[in-house]
Write a protein that binds this DNA or RNA. Structure first.
Lengths: 229, 229
DNA sequence: CACGCCCGTCAAGACCGCGTCAGGACGGTC
DNA sequence: GACCGTCCTGACGCGGTCTTGACGGGCGTG
């Protein structure tokens, strides 16, 4: 039900954490390096990420920033460093909470619940900004950076909403069709092409070379808010 | 720009907090009792609430729960109690973060930023003003800017109230029907058209070109207090 | 080099949702 | 019992939106 990603290189601690978390009903995936953490967090969907800052391969702050470039998944940081400056750096890098070791398991669990609770409506009413437009999920409309409203039809908005809510993850074409048109349309890939083209024409600076609405040939589509293309 | 509510009975600490926070650009309102805190948090809009659990008049957990009944404003708890159980209780009651005294000011500021980052637009009470009319949610009436009361039928008011309370967010037609007419009417979209037309005739300067009561075709309706249209 | 696959493009007709209007039913008040 | 305000209902027209099919291009494969 609830998917957790636990990033921690201390195998002893990983085992203890995973055991407890699973006993509380969480579905736990583990990673021992920052590279694995970034790869998992940006390609799979998790409800919360528990991240130890003291990783062997790379700086924890970099991991936070890299994940934040494409994902807004809640991140709860674990760290042995109690210094205020470390907390400030981690939180401002995009972390949602910061616990210093040693910590109590019940407190961690409560903070996980709080993080997940906040994230629930988080992507439901917030806005997602890119360099060229702003997606307002609450008002269900798209604006240019200067506030002008870009008009989308209901179907166009439906596709965009699904892609944006996927938070950077790849959305299979069949999923898109099911969510926007309904279960009976899962094979009408024509629709995807028509409406993706219309969305790009309205949103992309250069519709012929998409930067935000990306195609994964044979797999589906993906929304990249960084505009890296 | 950023409105803070600081709830703390230690006048010494309040002064220090308010001074620092204001120097960082926050607009700070203070409350010394739980009763004041609940009243303010439920009647005015704040971006974040900083709440000391050790209040003279009532239990801090009650304050959290009471605020949470009507508001989803982020709550950052301050407390002298370091016990894990206290943290768990506060977080599960609806708090978003928990700091133990003594705490570093920079850490508090970072946690405030993190809490606010998650915040979305919230509900409100009181009055909502536009250039052409004033919606008084308390008195359940609409006035023109010069104070004259614009008469609405109960159903008309019901629709307007739901839209205004949504605070600019899009309200699906089914939600509107459910809230105003009841669960059984969720498909009677005819009603929406008839009553929306009547509301516009009474409130809009030019009912044919709505500026405040906007249609999102295929999705629902939305109230825009700015009158941008 | 030819072929198939997948994706992007385009235009035209069918279709649907919204706004509008007016008539009738219902339930209060005097 | 008559009057008045409010609510429900159905029909109509219009504009925008969805659907559909055909065509073209890039790319890898046989």
């Amino acid at each position: 039900m609830t998917d957790l990603l636990v990033v921690e290189d201390d195998t002893q601690l990983v085992k203890a954490l995973a055991l407890t978390l699973r006993s509380r009903g969480y579905d736990v995936t583990t990673a021992g390096t920052g590279a694995d953490a970034v790869r998992l967090a940006t390609t799979r969907r998790f409800d919360v990420v528990v991240l130890d800052l003291g990783l062997p391969d790379r700086d924890g702050l970099e991991v936070i920033e890299e994940v934040r470039r494409t994902s807004s998944v809640p991140i709860v940081v674990l760290s042995a460093r109690r210094d205020q400056r470390d907390k400030v750096l981690a939180l401002d890098a995009g972390a949602d909470d910061y616990l210093t070791k040693p910590f109590g398991m019940e407190e961690l669990l409560a903070r996980l619940r709080a993080a997940q609770r906040r994230a629930g409506p988080g992507l439901q009413t917030g806005t997602v900004e890119t360099a060229d437009f702003v997606v307002d999920l609450g008002r269900k409309q798209v604006r240019s950076p200067d506030g002008e409203v870009l008009h989308l039809t209901p179907t166009e908005w439906g596709m965009l909403e699904v892609l944006v809510r996927a938070d950077g993850l790849l959305v299979p074409g069949a999923d898109l069709l099911r969510d926007v048109w309904g279960p009976a349309y899962a094979t009408q890939t024509n629709y995807l092409r028509v409406y993706m083209a219309q969305l790009r024409r309205k949103l992309e600076p250069d519709p012929a070379a998409p930067r935000y609405l990306l195609t994964a040939p044979g797999l589906g589509y993906r929304f990249d808010r960084t505009g890296a293309g």
